[in-house]
Each structure stands twice: as C-alpha cells, then as structure tokens.
Amino acid sequence: MSVPQTRKAGLPLMKLIRLKGIPILQQLELEEQLLRTSSDNWCIVNDGTNNPNIVMGISGKPAELLDIELVLRDQVPVIKRFTGGGTVTVDHGTIFVTFICNRDAVPGLQLYPRPIMSWSSQLYSRVFEIFGDFHLRENDYVFGNRKFGGNAQSITKNRWIHHTSFLWDYEVKNMAYLKLPKRVPEYRLARDHLEFICRMKDYMPRSVFIDKTVEAVSTEFSVISEHTDQFKTSSNFEPSTRLLTRQELKEVASQLESPLSQSLFL
C-alpha cells in the first residue's frame, strides 16, 4: 500500500517507517533514539523479526519470568527494552507497530497510560471492525477473551511511545520459554499460555492488517513515508535497551540451584 506524500490540512504530521524482518533489538534502539532525540511524530511498522527473541520490560526479572534452563539450552537472546510492560517471545510471526508522539499530537489526550491505551484501542477498532470480537481488556488487545496483542509504553515530559507486539502467528515451542508471571490480568482466569492467547492469522490476512493500520493512522495524521536506509542509531546515542549477556543468565541459573542449571553454568 502506498501512502500519499501530501499534507492533509489540519492534521498533525506523522512520519511512517515500514520495515520487514528487522532484528527487534535494532528496532527498539531506533525507537528509543527517536523518542529521546527527535521532535517529530513517528509510526514504525516492522513485519516480523529475524530469529526468536525474548523481550522483557525494563523492570522484568529473568528468574521470575523465564525458564532460564530452556533459554540457556536453546541460546535464545533476551532483551531488556527501555519501556515497561510484560515479557514476550517474538519471531517472524510477530508484527510490531509503534507510535512515538509529541504531547500535543492527539488533541485532548492526557499523557497517562490508560488514556493512551484507550486512544490506541479506538484506532485499532477501525482496523478490526469486521475481523473478530476486538476489545481492549486491561492492557491487552483481545479477540473475545484471548490475547493477541501486548502493549508497552513510556511517557516523558514532552513525548510518549506506545508499542505493540501482535501475534499474527507463533510457534508453540517458543511459548515454553515464558513462566506464568506473578501478576496476571484478571480475565486470564488461570488459563495456561496456549489457552490464553490466539493467532491473528485465524481472523485476517497479514497484509490486510498492516494496510488497514496505516489507513487508520491516516485518518488522524497526515502520514508521509520515510526511507528506511537513513535510520541507523547514532554513534553518539547510547540506548538503555540492551541484550542480556549469557553470563548474566548463567548467574540467574546458578542461583536457582537446579542440577541442570548447575551443569549449564560449567
């Protein structure tokens, strides 16, 4: 889908970056740089990432959230992003959509997590209006009572970011890396991970979702596409998003004091 390169009168400008298969670490570093150093509004769409990665919120604790033994055994990269939110396994079946905006980009929007979530759900309700029973439940996007989209945010003095990992598809074995967190949404009702989540591909085509998302954004912003080759993180910018080292994960494993983790530590 092409995006008109003309400004719409009365609508704020949003620059659109469309990516395909960019490593999630690189995407998160770009997002953090744009949040901290840019004064423009941005929408980033990344259609899948390369290999399976685990992405945790800034305050996430690997011992509580991950099956460390499996993560070490399979050598799955673990990333701590610069925003809050939960933990997710992402891969080629995940579609990422991010909004990075100035405080006045959405008229009347209060810069608190719940109003931003409400605004985003209203935008996505246009995307999913004929595809499934879409709702915002607590901090998740769901069809009925099954989650397909997890969200994370960060709010600074003058800007905010809202990014979503959409499960268009997933591999069952990759879900085994995640433990049941101590704090779970009430609507989860003690369901295990595979009973709690669903695949978007059972509801709509992948390309349709991406195109309709861009269309929905275009109703609230004057959208202009940007070329991706110019977007590389600056050598002068040091992102807080980072890859946890294998040594860090080994130290967590050793503290759990299981026979397998001890052998992995050697």
Results as ranks from 00 to 15, higher is better:
Thr94His: 05
Cys43Val: 14
Ser38Ile: 13
Gly60Tyr: 00
Asp104Ser: 11
Val78Ala: 10
Leu35Trp: 12
Val55Met: 03
Asp74Asn: 15
Glu31Gly: 05
Leu70Val: 06
Thr87Ala: 07
Glu69Leu: 09
Leu35Cys: 05
Asn51Glu: 14
Ile95Thr: 14
Ala105Arg: 07
Val88Gln: 06
Gln75Ile: 03
Gly86Thr: 08
Asp91Ser: 13
Gly93Asp: 09
Thr94Arg: 04
Val78Ser: 11
Ile95Cys: 15
Arg81Asn: 10
Asn53His: 15
Gly93Arg: 05
Asn41Arg: 06
Glu32Trp: 11
Arg36Phe: 02
Val106Gly: 13
Val88Lys: 08
Arg81Thr: 13
Arg81Ile: 11
Glu69Ala: 13
Ile58Ser: 01
His92Val: 15
Phe82Leu: 02
Val106Glu: 14
Thr83Ala: 05
Thr98Gly: 14
Val90Gly: 01
Pro52His: 01
Asp91Phe: 00
Gly93Gln: 08
Gln33Leu: 08
His92Pro: 05
Phe96Gly: 14
Val76Leu: 07
Gly48Pro: 02
Asp47Phe: 00
Asp40Glu: 15
Ile54Lys: 07
Gly93His: 08
Gly86His: 13
Ser39Phe: 07
Trp42Gln: 01
Asn50Tyr: 07
Pro52Ile: 01
Ile68His: 12
Ile68Gly: 06
Gln33Asn: 06
Asn46Glu: 02
Glu29Gly: 07
His92Ser: 11
Arg103Glu: 14
Arg103Gln: 14
Thr94Asn: 07
Gln75Asn: 12
Asn51Cys: 10
Asn53Pro: 01
Gly48Met: 02
Ala63Cys: 09
Ile44Val: 11
Asn41Ala: 02
Lys61Gly: 00
Gly48Phe: 01
Asp104Lys: 12
Gln33Thr: 06
Ser39Lys: 15
Pro52Ala: 01
Ile58Asn: 00
Thr89Val: 15
Asp74Ile: 05
Leu70Ile: 06
Lys80Gln: 12
Glu32Cys: 13
Ser39Leu: 12
Ile44Tyr: 02
Thr49Trp: 00
Ile79Met: 07
Thr83Asp: 03
Val45Met: 08
Glu64Ile: 10
Ser39Tyr: 05
Leu34His: 10
Ile68Ala: 07
Glu29Val: 10
His92Tyr: 04
Asp67Tyr: 10
Leu35Ser: 06
Ala105Trp: 08
Gly84Phe: 02
Thr49Phe: 00
Asp104Gly: 04
Val76Cys: 05
Leu72Val: 07
Leu30Ser: 04
Cys43Gln: 09
Lys61Phe: 00
Leu34Met: 15
Ile95Glu: 08
Gln33Glu: 14
Thr94Ile: 12
Glu69Phe: 10
Glu31Ser: 09
Arg103Lys: 15
Ser39Val: 12
Ile58Cys: 03
Glu31Asp: 08
Ile44Glu: 03
Leu66Pro: 02
Leu70Phe: 12
Asn53Asp: 07
Asn53Gly: 02
Gly60Phe: 00
Gly85Asp: 01
Glu31Ile: 07
Lys61Ala: 01
Asp74Tyr: 15
